[in-house]
Design a protein around this nucleic acid. Structure first.
Lengths: 246, 246
DNA sequence: GCACGTTCTACCATTGAATGGAAGGCCACT
DNA sequence: AGTGGCCTTCCATTCAATGGTAGAACGTGC
């Protein structure tokens, strides 16, 4: 035995340890973590102990492993979305106040929309769980709003995955959605994510006219009033873009 | 040369890289990062490249280094404060609605209060910057509320640092603050953080009667109405505690 | 347009830090 | 008292990590 029988670097292993936590799971037993990360128990133990000495993880009594508060702090202080969220929050609050709907903010990462901020509808039980959640581009209005304003090349590359005509979703359908979103300046999806809700999103353009985020609302089907929502979202998106600079 | 001339492990180095970002700084040049982390340029480069291949960092063209979206996502999905924030958000929104003040939620980490959530006063420019911010226990109402409900041993250990009677703050003063907070069930500080504001915080107890967080508001001195604020905070704190379980 | 400074990136021989099986400890349950 | 599950520690082996060096890419001033 020597440095890694399996041919992976220390960095690989640390990443696997952090990624081993399933979504929404806060703590894991050491042995389970070792399993999930595909590491020998003793190696996992050593790694976790080292990381917890620095506060990136938290190794509690009995081998309970959590992410460290220090890691949460560092990431949230220096997150790449910090400027975006700061610029967007006042406008998101405005939308929430005026329309009383769930407001969300997403960025594009891979072929998915990653939700970076969310305000719940007033009066409803807050649903913060979906912060840091992902949705495939083609089944989220935010994803469509973002993708419809990307370069031709990126869109082409994206559409490749739907090339197989026997698939559930064909590239033609998605291409149609994107074209529509690009032409109208907003994207909408009714009853896709949840049968009773309607999602509407508009792109947030920075000063270089690149779509860096999407601002959206999720409304009950019954309360759908497109003519009121879209202008409000577009106005807010412009405000955010101006604040962003670039 | 071999594995680390300076006697630090790979884990140490990765931590130093992540910690190298000063508060609020989103991107760093590779060479500056190497400097700050105390690493040889080539080592820093290799490490950053490896981490960015996994998405924990983002190594852009020209050697621009940022924290990776994937890291932000993983940490926010599995953060140890997730349950706390989810339990607290509806109550924080209530406070914000009813009192129209800045509301915040903090936990104790070391001898500091770490702010894990914050809602801005309606109408004011959102101040999300202070999420993931820290304040020393003795100059934050949240810190005092938390510390005043910790064990005798921890309080004693904490007070050690003020033992020097020639220091700016003496242990007697802090002990007085803690005793007052423990007796009253809330902590208040006027004009300490900001000369024109008053901070009030109450502890959030879980079902085991351990103070796991502090719920607080920051109000302008002029609008100070203790008799209205404290009961509202205490009611909300109880609600959060009940939701938390444990 | 050329020389210079700065910063990023790639290479590769050297070697000590990382590795993981094995053994010991602790607790809970039978 | 025995058994199983889990955490923790130890330490000889060895290959992955290291970082000086050199080269590429860019910008800048003369």
């Amino acid at each position: 035995m020597a440095n890694s029988a399996s041919g992976d670097s220390v960095v690989d292993r640390i990443v696997r340890v952090i990624e081993a936590f399933p979504e929404g799971v806060i703590s894991l037993q050491l042995s389970e973590l070792a399993d999930r990360a595909g590491l020998p128990l003793s190696s996992a133990h050593r790694l976790v102990r080292q990381l917890s000495e620095h506060g990136l993880l938290d190794l509690g009594a009995g081998g309970t492993v959590r992410l460290g508060l220090r890691l949460w702090e560092l990431v949230n202080r220096n997150s790449p979305t910090l400027a975006l969220r700061q610029a967007a929050m006042p406008f998101m609050e405005d939308i929430q106040q005026v329309l009383n709907q769930n407001v969300n903010l997403a960025v594009l990462d891979g072929w998915e929309a990653l939700f970076v901020e969310r305000l719940s509808r007033r009066g409803s039980v807050a649903n913060r769980a979906r912060i840091a959640g992902r949705m495939p581009v083609h089944i989220s209005s935010a994803g469509l709003a973002l993708m419809s304003h990307q370069s031709r090349e990126m869109q082409a590359e994206y559409l490749q995955q739907f090339a197989d005509p026997s698939g559930k979703v064909t590239s033609d359908v998605v291409r149609h959605f994107l074209a529509e979103a690009a032409q109208q300046g907003y994207a909408q999806l009714a009853g896709v994510v949840d049968p009773d809700t309607w999602g509407i999103a508009v792109p947030v353009m920075n000063m270089k006219r690149r779509a860096v985020a999407a601002l959206g609302v999720v409304v009950p089907l019954a309360e759908m009033r497109l003519q009121a929502l879209v202008p409000a979202l577009q106005t807010a998106a412009r405000g955010i873009g101006r604040q962003l600079g670039d």
